[in-house]
Amino acid sequence: MIDLLLEPLGFEFMRNALTMGVLLGVLCAVVGSYMIVQQMGMMGDMISHSVMAGLPISVYLGLPLSVGALAAGVLSAIALSGIESQSRLKMDSVMALILASFLAIGTMLVTILPGANRIDLIHVLFGNILGVNIADLRLTFSITVLILVAVFSFYKELLFYTFDPVGAQAGGMPVRWYYLGMVTAISLTVVANLQTVGVLLVIAMLVAPGMTAYLLVNELHHMMLLGTLFGALSGIMGMYLSYYLNVPSGAAIVLVSFSLFLVTFLLSPTQGLLTQSGMTQQLTQQLRRIWR
């Protein structure tokens, strides 16, 4: 058993990937918890796709990919807020339009801007955690520390803002800055995830650990702490599964994350589908009705 655990650690790429998995587990759980309580899950999806627009521009200007990705992510959220507040359109339809448009801009610029066609779109869409190097780890570590310090410093303000944004604004809090801080944090988290799971699966990394913890606890900081544990555990278990079953690492991490959610959804002591009184009976009756 010990050999099974130790063997992959003999490879540097696995050590890097596991470290990255744990770091992202922590980062995604904290940022994702805010997204869940603010019902901003789909905004995470929009931002993760929108970062694509910034990648070719980064290459063209000779900047690190993360700079363009961050700028495009934040810009998409500002565009969302601007359009939604200045029209009768609802948030979900505006998000759908921005997501597709920024993705289209990215795809088009890859072919138009000189040098941008060296961006590997498959790599960006699906990630490659096994290709993680020390520079990637440093970037993710820095983003994680930055966001943890920010959350620790502004915890009570963010709690107020995310629970009752109207009350927070009425109390004189600069809610626009908190919105900007929140979307910047989501964009930074997406940037950190680009290498690992890619833009298509990052949304699962962001919401799954927090959602699982949400079903077990009563307070936001407990949700973040427990989510961190689930996130890190998903990273480690996903990497081992990927190593031994020879399956894609990003997908393995996401599916472990989803499995943890599914088990909790069924068995959570307070909110589990099968643990609530009478729920099993109701479920059986419904299944019988469908069967007939």
């Binding site: 309580v37 019902q39 009570k156 303000e157 709690l159 107020f160 995310t162 629970f163 009752d164 109207v166 009350g167 927070a168 009425a170 109390g171 004189g172 809090m173 949400y214 606890v217 009563n218 307070e219 936001l220 407990h222 949700m223």
Partner: peptide
């Protein structure tokens, strides 16, 4: 100013205790 919003503006499923809701009064 103390402002109590309409009930419909609050997400009552938010993971927060009574104490922390009341403590928001002292945030600023």
């Amino acid at each position: 100013v103390a402002y109590v919003p309409q009930r419909s503006q609050i997400d009552w499923d938010y993971p927060i205790t009574v104490w922390h809701v009341a403590m928001m009064a002292r945030t600023v």
